[in-house]
Design a protein around this nucleic acid. Structure first.
Lengths: 144, 144
DNA sequence: AATAATATCTATAATATCTATAGACTTTAA
DNA sequence: TTAAAGTCTATAGATATTATAGATATTATT
């Protein structure tokens, strides 16, 4: 399961994708609109800023805004940043690989294969899911 | 990521699948062979027994053994039992559904779709992965 | 009947992680 | 100069995970 932190991040980013190129949005507004504890959101946005997904402007009239185009930020990147590995086993993770402590021998471990498949499919699906695509989807559904 | 508990469960079950219909295997042996803390393993096996995946025989000469055929126990069932939901979001889970607290309105939430896809693919792949299949795979690899 | 080997049950300790909050500080526009 | 923002450091509280201890019940064997 995704952590709350990660879900908050996704919601905040989709919110900012909706306001792309409309100037900085301040934390308070995002927090209220998305029902996210403000102080928690602060830490999250800061992390997204350090990862060059967001930019910020300090001082009066300041706030956060997307650094990249909404179609260039996908769920994979957000999840990795907030929660770490996508894979269900460390020995099968691309970005957070670690040998499985529980595995006696990775080479002959029959468990990994299924999880390799899951990882690949997950990457495929979530990397196609961008902020742009999510935001558009919400608008389409809203109209039905 | 799967919990250690879940990984221990999978390893123990694959071990028992290898010994299918060869009489009870005692906890101590599984713990040593798979490097699992014995007391922790006790709790895990008990849970698997309550879920009718394992059976046990008490007293001298007792131990644990598979209750069902190795081809009738898949990874989905084990993961659900040990770690809960397969899905990455509660609002997209079949067995552990809960409305997303973070979602303002599930009907118009554009985030769910991608995770629905991930859930379906994960279920598909992991339900095809049975103890029998894993054990066979290990033997095949071992021979190479 | 006694003994030893085993699973079962209850409790709890030790860690780790997640979620949330407080408060002082810095920057900027007006 | 002031008010409105983000930034930084610290920490509290809650929850979940991992591991262990010890007493009890059951069974095969002698």
């Amino acid at each position: 399961m995704l952590s709350k932190k990660c879900k908050y991040a996704i919601h905040a980013l989709v919110y900012l994708a909706d306001r792309y190129q409309q100037g900085p949005v301040h934390i308070q507004e995002i927090a209220e609109a998305q029902h996210i504890p403000k102080k928690f959101l602060e830490a999250i946005l800061l992390e997204l800023r350090n990862a060059k997904i967001l930019h910020s402007k300090k001082g009066k009239g300041g706030g956060y805004y997307l650094y990249r185009k909404p179609q260039e930020v996908n769920l994979i990147e957000i999840i990795r940043l907030m929660d770490g590995a996508i894979a269900m086993l460390p020995c099968v993770s691309l970005n957070y690989y670690e040998p499985c402590e529980e595995c006696l021998d990775e080479k002959t471990c029959g468990i990994r294969f299924a999880f390799l498949g899951v990882r690949d499919e997950t990457l495929r699906i979530l990397s196609e899911s961008t902020l742009d695509q999510i935001a558009k989807q919400e608008k389409t559904i809203g109209k039905r």
